[in-house]
């Protein structure tokens, strides 16, 4: 049986400092922990992470796996799993900055394409009770990107990163039940993706790519009750 040791501690510390890691970063950390990553890597990671989760679970932390919506890349995320009076003592961001982040989530979730323009994001500051200056807001958005809570694409559009989506999964489902859509293929929360013109179902880009590749030339909507011919309509 695997024994909890310095390697696991290093992994936790590395996770704390980065928030999330892609597979090659996980590989790098685990190999620094003295594990041979060349054989049965998947199996080893699963065991490694499971053991860590047993140890950090009691303080409401969990390492979870998730896919980045835009490119389908897998990541491991260190997530806080409970909203308590102690967790609310967190001070990485000021209360007003957190209010702005909430407004950002709201407008991203309410937007059909799961993105918001940078100008629209700046205008969210008007909705705050306590005002935030434009420069201050811009610094905050940069910090959010630096800390990997949000992503900015080449057009300057802001979306929630896999870190936010994984950690805030339950929050978004609970607070915005009328807005959230779930991918018909993987059943997970879907903010950015493709939609079917016929039935309105939404799919992650990666999930639908996998599906269509299997289908061959006659593409139909992945939704079992629909199966309308797929018109390559993309909602964004």
């Amino acid at each position: 049986m695997e024994v909890f040791g310095d390697g696991h501690r290093l992994f936790i510390q590395s996770m704390m400092s980065r928030g999330m890691m892609n597979i090659s970063e996980v590989k790098e950390v685990i190999s620094e922990c003295g594990l041979d990553v060349e054989t049965e890597f998947k199996d080893k990671v699963v065991k490694f992470v499971r053991l860590i989760n047993q140890h950090i679970g009691p303080i409401n932390l969990e390492i979870r796996k998730g896919l980045e919506e835009e490119n389908g890349q897998p990541y491991y995320i260190l997530a806080n799993t409970a909203e308590t009076s102690i967790s609310r003592l967190s001070s990485t961001y000021s209360p007003n900055e957190l209010e702005l982040f909430k407004k950002l989530i709201e407008s991203i979730v309410e937007n059909e394409d799961g993105k918001i323009g940078s100008l629209a994001a700046m205008n969210l500051t008007d909705k705050l009770e306590k005002k935030i200056g434009k420069e201050e807001a811009e610094n905050f958005f940069n910090r959010l990107e630096d800390d990997r809570w949000i992503r900015k694409n080449t057009n300057g559009k802001i979306s929630l990163s896999v870190r936010s989506i994984v950690e805030l999964d339950q929050y978004i489902k609970d607070v915005y039940p009328d807005y959230v859509k779930f991918c018909s293929l993987c059943t997970k929360l879907c903010l950015q993706g493709r939609g079917c013109e016929n039935c309105g179902a939404k799919f992650h880009i990666r999930c639908s790519n996998v599906f269509f590749n299997k289908q061959g030339s006659n593409k139909t909507c992945p939704e079992p009750n629909c199966r309308a011919p797929w018109g390559q309509v993309v909602i964004h």
Binding site: D6, L10, Q13, S14, S17, V29, E32, D146
Partner: peptide, 14 residues
């Protein structure tokens, strides 16, 4: 933790 040089690099700071 007693870390060597390459292990220390795995802990990032902003």
């Amino acid at each position: 933790l007693e870390l060597n040089e390459s292990q220390k690099k795995l802990i990032n700071t902003n």
